[in-house]
Write a protein that binds this DNA or RNA. Structure first.
Lengths: 323, 323
DNA sequence: CAGTCTCGCGCAACCGGTTGCACGTCAACC
DNA sequence: GGTTGACGTGCAACCGGTTGCGCGAGACTG
């Protein structure tokens, strides 16, 4: 920068302003500086700028598992939205581990203007502490007072249970997800409540890591349970379960009905999966927009924004088999 | 930091060394500093450190499409590997657009110690220019002199063509991928060369964006072509094509054989897809390891590292139908 | 006991920008 | 014609660390 200033014959201040607040300067000066800068290949140093202004122009984003297909569209939409305001995004994988998430966040802390924690596994105190240090928004995690985006899948899960009930199913299973997941808690609670209300029997099958293989291995216990239908925490696990059942000669939906969540597979399975659909892109976009507003000091209208979901009926649910 | 120094009764230098080079100090001093730091909640500021040392401890990573299932495992493995050395990673989505990639890279430039460009769409000059400015490694992009990791799918694609030939197929199709993709060029060239060698007829179906929907829409032209088999640039497009063909009553593999690439679907399709498999995790891990070595000044052993692939036979290929 | 070394630490400059304040110039105004 | 104000620019301090160099104290040597 000093070199540039010398080359142009102005002071560092002027060069600085040419890039950060060109309107303060004589347009000709700005042009001259821009021209010489291009010639000698000068680019303002974001790290230095951040140090002196305190505005880093970066945001930190952490997800439990990058490779879980639910997250990439959300990450992508978030990154693209951030880029529209020239923000760079750090990405971290917590691997569902609060300690790892904490590590990541603390590494991000001193170089970001804001944090986006997606399906955070941190405990409330920790989240509150970070929120005091740095603008922070949550996705799919509900902590009072902290700005958050919630993909509200409870009602659609309840609808799924009603749907199964209307098809004559009486004994169903809920295949759970990561215990610390807010979505998991919502879905489980909604399924339980609705089943109870309708007088259905609901068994919860615990699962720690949602995965295709997990679903596959679930086939025997699910069959043994005597249930005729299942609602799963996510599509991936549901897909595994579906395949596992098929391998055992169980026809879907004739012999067994299945509902997934998140709609990450679309209609690509065979039969296409009945599931709870939503737009994770929208969640990513809104979350970043809210975070940028928070950073700008514009208190977001409401600190809580919910994104709706709905049950989409496809081919994995049908009438309960006759005994 | 000054506060901490005052509170402990030492100089800033000592506090600094307590965190960056504790071995230079009296262990008791380090302990005292650490204790007080924890009490008042001091954390070293990475941005400031970067400014004064020039070592940012961040790496920038850009991919063409975060949501393309080939990338998330690679991104994840890279991030995890980087984290083992306390590096944070910026992630950017170029959306297959060289200009966008350029934007991202230039934003990263002044805050990273290294760049990882995955399947870069930048032109060679640009890549070389960036490599002069900053340690840089490429994945699935072949620029002489620049350290790179190449997932060498050519041989396996050739094997796929031989496989189809041995099954009696004579007219086949290559469903292409993004034109600027190195992998695409490799695969296409390998398929062409092998088909020619074997005296098979190979038609290239151009595709700009690999996607399930793209594959779906390809069913009619593929059928019209008179070919009895296809090799596709990736599994996603192949999957779409497979479904499109099924919708039209074409049985796979009885009436038509299909080979995918990347093995992102595993055996989850029905029938399970014959494909070219590799470990994108390994690519991500190696790439970051190589980049870290480059940053550390250890010239990587060879500046070119290839990762092998192999054809895995599953259920979408079978004998050519009799006319 | 004087001389030499090592160890632990402080001083101050520096990394590359930003910004409050001051200064000089010139046009507009009464 | 002197005053006022706006405009364009420079000065220097500051953001929060790092690091080469120097200094004093204690240990060790001959």
């Amino acid at each position: 920068m000093a070199d540039l200033a010398r080359a142009v014959g102005v002071s560092k201040s002027t060069v600085s302003r040419a890039f950060s607040r060109p309107d303060m300067l004589n347009p000709e000066t700005v042009d001259r500086i821009a021209e010489v800068a291009a010639r000698i290949g000068y680019r303002p140093n974001r790290a230095a700028r951040a140090l002196s202004t305190g505005r880093h122009g970066n945001i930190g984003m952490v997800v439990p598992d990058i490779a879980n297909p639910f997250f990439p569209p959300l990450i992508r939409a978030g990154q693209v939205e951030a880029d529209r305001s020239d923000f760079c995004v750090f990405l971290g994988n917590s691997d569902e581990d609060p300690e790892q998430e904490d590590r990541l966040v603390s590494h991000f802390l001193s170089q970001v203007s804001g944090l986006l924690l997606i399906a955070s596994r941190l405990d409330e105190d920790r989240i509150r502490a970070y929120a005091d240090l740095c603008p922070l928004v949550l996705v799919n995690r509900d902590v009072a007072g902290i700005p958050r985006i919630l993909i509200d899948s409870g009602p659609a899960v309840a609808e799924a249970v009603r749907h199964l009930h209307s098809l004559g199913h009486e004994r169903i299973i809920y295949v759970s997800g990561p215990p610390k997941s807010w979505s998991e808690q919502e879905r489980r609670a909604a399924a339980k409540a609705e089943a109870e209300r309708l007088g259905m029997s609901l068994t919860v099958v615990p699962v720690t890591k949602p995965a295709y293989e997990t679903g596959l291995e679930l086939a025997p216990p699910v069959l043994d349970s005597g249930a005729t239908a299942a609602v799963a925490f996510d599509d991936i696990t549901a897909h595994g379960l579906m395949t596992g059942l098929s391998h055992r000669g169980v026809a879907i939906p004739k012999d067994f009905s299945l509902v997934g969540c998140d709609d990450v597979l679309g209609a690509r399975t065979n039969p296409p999966m009945t599931t709870v659909t939503t737009s994770s892109e929208e969640a990513g976009r809104c979350a970043i927009a809210m975070l940028l507003a928070l950073i700008a000091g514009a208190v977001p209208q409401g600190t809580l924004r919910t994104i709706s979901t709905r049950l989409v009926l496809r081919g994995t649910t049908g009438p309960a088999p006759q005994r």
